[in-house]
Amino acid sequence: MHRRLKSPGNRIFAVVVAVLSAAGPSAAAPETLRISGSTTLTPIAAKAAERFRKRHRGVRVFVSPTGSGAGIAAMASGTADIGMASREIDPDERKRFPKADFVVTPAARDAVVPVVSAAVYEAGVTALSLADLRRIYSGEAANWKAFGGPDAEILVIDKEASRGTRHVFMGAVFGDEKAKAPGARLVTGSNNEEQAAVSQSDAAIGMLSNAWMNERVRGLAIKTADGAVAPTLENVLSGRFPISRNLNFVTDGPPRGLAKRFIDFVLSPEGQSIVEELGYVAVAETGRDQSGKGR
């Protein structure tokens, strides 16, 4: 009994060993690049990584959408090679990670746009001023009627405190990147989550990257002294739209090795054309521009 049981067990063991040893050498070799952070930058990094992998066989690139704050923390503490940040580095972060030498490389430009549910937009609220946004997020105004909209309570959607989009939005609206929003009725994290929450409501307002609008999540123009400025690509590029920002790659010291090759690829004409395809604004010459010049 004892003997007979033994042999199939041994055979299974042998197979397991064989599989492991076959997988071993190939699993150890490839170069790995870990990118983590802003969910606004994630589509760019993911698409670029896909192309980058095709050019560099055997290179592994991991892109984790964790949010700007988390990405910067991961990069500074060494669990990621590149941090993605949809904002600039905060003085507090420099204090928290005194050993890190933050080097910021802009990869694209983008606007943070106040977004509303389609129902609100269609009822006539297509532009708000920064002061209006301040009243909404501080809780002074709680009904869309005050802004020419439907008689409905405003579902004010805030974002997690560490999110880059929130820093930029609050910086523009309150003049303080860490401003509290007592008017908030809901808190979301990633762009995806925010988009879903706005589209599921017919009275919501939120903040989103310009590349994340759709028919159910509509971007508002911002009322300024010289009229309403819509978040068009031209207005983002020229800086007329008041809530614009760079989308940044952050490294510890100047980019080196694989990280440098990846960032250079994103800044190349091919990389920048990915940026434009996804609805963001390129910061360097794009492939499209160049072919236009050639003709």
Binding site: A70, A73, E160, V187
Partner: peptide, 11 residues
């Protein structure tokens, strides 16, 4: 779940 990844160790 929402804050742990972002908090710097020791803060």
């Amino acid at each position: 779940g929402r804050e742990a990844v972002e908090a710097a160790v020791g803060s």
